[in-house]
Design a protein around this nucleic acid. Structure first.
Lengths: 188, 188
DNA sequence: CGCCAACATGTCAAGGCTGGAATGTGGGAT
DNA sequence: ATCCCACATTCCAGCCTTGACATGTTGGCG
């Protein structure tokens, strides 16, 4: 339930409307904590009802500007101090990798190499982003830079790993031909 | 909705009961796709209702052994061939990192160094696992090894990144004292 | 002046996931 | 013979998330 805390965190910096917050989710924050429109508006309503945030201003198109209440500020502080133990992440790519042995070896290798390519492309995108943005505007940008760096390294890792895995599978195919296990071949 | 496919994938190798499958989720598979008991049993029931799996044997304590039907096999094949685009992962650690600028610098640095320590410990655990297991039993173990390697590299990355980030924050604290942004200090 | 892209919010059904509770059986160790 | 742990399943309330649909406004450009 950390969407709540992401919103509170953003509101510490400055008050904003659902629309404002949403824009942040669609760019930077969404890279580490995706959230849809309906979810953001819904959560804001709840947060308001709970008294953690409050409407401080109403603008043109029914715009409602939210800001933290003292309770909200306290909750943000509490959350930030808290240690969240990190549980395993759901990773579709690794899930498929787990079952890659069910594909014919050439296909499995090809798949891994495609992963590598994708990662390489994403890496380049992030590099471009890194070089385009001014990262010393404020504390949030400062930390955004840290998170971006993580993404960068992650993509590099993904690429190297996928190439390593492909190589390993290829070798295995040559030395140990058939491990006598079920496969999923082409459909008849 | 990939829990469904994880189950189908496992059942390609050998038939099994909910209990059997659950054990796999609690160890290897759960590292890339966590699932609780209630979810596994629920999904098996649905899968059975859909006709993708079927009960092939009933054992002692109401044990039901499931196996793939031809449709289930086809669906597993379909899924494995499919390219799932990977959307951003929710990452609680990075979410907190994003807001680390709200903490006093020393605390932020300490936090990052704790992340590094955790990652280091997890790394060691995975190394132990790597050296304990025989990874050439079958195709599933083979690929499990690939996934483990990913976890290994991931932990190494996390550690290095966290140290890098801590160092960067520390430097910044010395050169550019206050960025004139809101902070969350100690409670009064 | 008219139009459109951006602004701005609300609502809902359906499905996924969590966490807990409830229930009962059987094999092996003592 | 007994006991206990591992085996084994079912159900549920409640929250989170997704993906749509629905609706209306306004500032600025041509």
């Amino acid at each position: 339930m950390s969407l709540r805390h992401a919103l509170l965190g953003l509101l510490v910096f400055r008050p904003g409307s659902g629309y404002d917050l949403l824009k942040i989710f669609n760019t930077s924050l969404g890279q580490v904590w995706p959230a849809r429109q309906s979810q953001v508006y819904g959560e804001l309503t709840k947060l308001d009802a709970t008294g953690l945030i409050t409407v401080t201003d109403e603008g043109p198109r029914g715009r409602k500007q939210y800001a933290l209440t003292p309770e909200g500020h306290a909750e943000a502080r509490r959350w930030l101090a808290e240690r969240e133990e990190h549980q395993p992440q759901r990773n579709p790519m690794l899930l498929q990798t787990f079952f890659l042995g069910l594909l014919p070896p050439e296909e499995a290798v090809a798949r891994l190499l495609r992963y590598a390519d994708t990662a390489a492309r994403e890496y380049d995108d992030l590099v471009a982003l890194r070089d385009a943005e001014p990262w010393d505007r404020d504390a949030m940008a400062e930390c955004g830079r840290l998170v971006l760096e993580y993404g960068l390294r992650q993509r590099a890792l993904e690429q190297e790993w996928a190439r390593w895995a492909a190589e390993r599978l290829r070798e295995r195919r040559l030395t140990a031909p058939a491990a006598g296990q079920p496969e999923i071949p082409e459909p008849a």
